[in-house]
Design a protein around this nucleic acid. Structure first.
Length: 454
RNA sequence: GUGGUUGUAGCUCAGUUGGUUAGAGCGUCGGUUUGUGGUACCGAAAGUCGUGGGUUCGAGCCCCAUCUUCCACCCCA
């Protein structure tokens, strides 16, 4: 049998692990500088915790875990014969792999509410799983790096998260990212204006194509989706969103003048935009994007999405938003939260494509001792112990193999120094130290050797 | 979930309209060099051609199914 791994999963080589932890550490460091504390939650949760939080599409993409034992015995006979997959699933599966980090976090907050001091700022870097069809930058197992604040409605949080995005991407050398921002309140008031909430998705999808296919075709698509001519006339200002963020906001304000909710959304956006303008950004661009919808059901206020620099074909590398009542589902009212997520795996691919990885030193020994046999090996091991106590990575080749093999090993692993200590050296109580880069070698005493390897 | 695409040695790939024992480069291992790596030369091992069916005198090549890869839609990180 040929060994293989499930689709959408990956193995990581030592150099990939090194690069991944470089990204991870950059993000974690930034999180802590911004005042977030780490938590971890289980890989799988009770299905009831996850189901219904991500919309219909999301439910379909949740990996369900089969109950243990004779699970079919407990399933309803009729449902089985009728092949009612969804209903049967709820009877034979009570657990599921986590789909994101935000919902488990909300559960955590409610469960530990008495131990938590609010506002609570937590970060979490863990894998999540989605039963999606894999493609470029889309995996079935991938890491999310989340930071959220719960227990504060302050719009300063939104402004801070934009600073956080900017800080991380700047540190990674990934400049010219675009942070898109929108507000759910604006979206739902646009839905009011065009006449129907259920048309909103079609509407934003069509509007999003404005740059590519032009206004006429966009209007055509909207009409074909059942949006009235009258509604399209009303939202004309949206077609002219070419100006600055503030100009766009003004246009929105006029368009949504009749909607209290819409005006509230504009006000919130304006706060964030103004704050960010005052604070400045190092390398990212902030852009108001009314077509940004985001599927996750629980967002109620600001929504964010980060896209890679132009020219890199990649879905969003980060996203987030404000959710006013996520904890309410678990029985804790009036706790507003806002948070963002970094997509580690996609950031990796973007950095790789742009050649932005610095050469990372792989964990490897600084010096390899050639194994000549038991007596010589013991003689070497004594020095190796001393070197290790001084944090110098040293190792003895495990077998008394041919010299050539041992040297080749050192060469392939790019080990800087090799020590040869055969019977001659043992007798004279010295070591032969060879520099593998220059090829030079010299004899030296034990203290001398340790000093040279420091 | 819908549509398309890919699979030949550890890796990257050749393989003619279907025709004997399926090839190359890199890598691996051995040797030239039994206390010296990177270079060079010589040699070897390694493939049920993704898997299972089918068509055919004959299948790596054609057909079907399935798995996998990548891509688009959808959705998203």
């Amino acid at each position: 049998m040929k060994p293989s791994i499930p689709k959408g999963t990956r193995d990581f080589s030592p150099s990939e692990v090194a690069n991944r932890s470089y990204i991870m550490n950059t993000i974690k460091t930034a999180f802590e500088i911004f005042g977030f504390q780490p938590i971890e939650t289980p890989s799988f949760e009770n299905s009831s915790t996850l189901m219904g939080k991500y919309g219909e599409e999301g439910d379909r993409l949740i990996f369900k875990i089969l109950n243990s034992g004779d699970f079919l015995k407990k399933a309803d006979e009729q449902l089985l014969t009728d092949k009612e997959s969804i209903k049967v699933t709820s009877q034979i599966s009570e657990k599921a792999l986590r789909y994101d980090l935000t919902v488990p976090f909300a559960r955590y907050v409610v469960q530990h509410q008495n131990e938590i001091t609010f506002p609570f700022k937590r970060y979490q870097v863990q894998p999540v799983w989605r039963a999606d069809r894999p493609q470029k930058g889309r995996f079935r197992e991938f890491y999310q790096c989340d930071a959220d604040v719960v227990g504060s409605k302050s719009l300063w949080q939104e402004a801070e998260f934009i600073q956080l995005y900017d800080t991380v991407f700047t540190k990674l050398g990934l400049t010219k990212t675009t942070i898109k921002i929108n507000n759910r309140k604006i979206l739902s008031s646009i839905a009011e204006v065009i006449g129907a909430q259920d048309k909103l998705i079609d509407f934003t999808v069509a509007l999003d194509k404005l740059d590519k296919i032009g206004q006429a075709k966009v209007e055509e698509e909207m009409l074909s989706k059942g949006i009235s001519e009258e509604a399209i006339q009303k939202v004309q200002p949206l077609f002219n969103f070419k100006g600055s963020n503030l100009e766009n906001l003004e246009a929105l304000e006029q368009l949504l003048a009749a909607s209290e909710e819409g005006l509230q959304g504009v006000k919130e956006l304006r706060f964030v935009i103004n704050a960010t303008t005052e604070l400045g950004l190092q390398s990212a661009n902030l852009e108001v994007d009314v077509t940004l919808a985001r599927g996750l059901n629980y967002y109620t206020g600001a929504i964010f999405e980060v896209s890679a620099p132009k020219g890199v074909k990649m879905g969003s590398i980060g996203g987030g938003g404000r959710y006013d009542d996520l904890t309410g589902i678990f029985g804790m009212k009036d706790v507003s939260g806002v948070g963002i997520s970094f997509g580690l795996d996609r950031i990796y691919l973007v950095l790789e494509e742009l050649g932005l990885f610095k050469t990372v030193d792989l964990p490897k020994p600084k010096v390899l001792f050639i194994n000549f046999g038991y007596t010589e090996g013991l003689y070497c091991m004594k020095v190796i112990s001393e070197l290790r106590k001084q944090n110098i990575k040293a190792e003895l080749y495990p077998d008394a193999a041919k010299m050539k093999k041992q040297m080749t090993y050192a060469n392939n692993r790019e080990i800087e120094y090799v020590v040869l200590a055969g019977s001659q050296e043992v007798e004279q109580e010295i070591f032969t130290l060879k520099n593998m880069i220059t090829g030079e070698q010299q004899k030296c005493s034990k203290p001398d050797l340790i000093k040279k390897l420091k």
